[in-house]
């Protein structure tokens, strides 16, 4: 499983970003290898359509699960059509590591 967490910085210790499309970084955690990859969001400062563009980015990076606070209209449709599961994690101020742990523990609600 490849889990994506939108974040404010590139490290697992950085704070999660609750704005899916506008988050400056995406951290992708691979549950099989336990490795983390981090990417700068190319569309973070875009003019519009950041949600669908972020969805495309996740699809291009073979993400299976998105762990985030909320996802808006068009991006939601795109993620669902792309078979990506959205798990809601809304704990302001927590880190990417916390989010990964919350995913591993289970019990996150699906959007």
């Amino acid at each position: 499983m490849r889990i994506c967490i939108p974040s404010k910085g590139p490290e697992p210790g950085d704070i999660v970003d609750e704005r899916f499309g506008r988050a400056p970084y995406y951290l992708i955690h691979d549950t099989e290898t336990g490795k983390n990859e981090s990417y700068k969001n190319p569309a973070a400062e875009g003019m519009g359509g950041v949600g669908p563009r972020a969805a495309q980015f996740l699809l291009d990076h073979d993400v299976n699960v998105l762990v985030t606070a909320r996802v808006g209209g068009n991006a939601l449709g795109a993620l669902k059509a792309g078979g990506i599961t959205i798990l809601l994690y809304d704990a302001a101020g927590s880190t990417v590591m916390d989010a990964i742990n919350a995913y591993t523990t289970g019990g996150l609600r699906e959007q």
Binding site: G46, P52, Q56
Partner: peptide, 10 residues
Amino acid sequence: CAFGALVAAR
């Protein structure tokens, strides 16, 4: 597309 009008899903 710079406007996010297209998404290539599965």
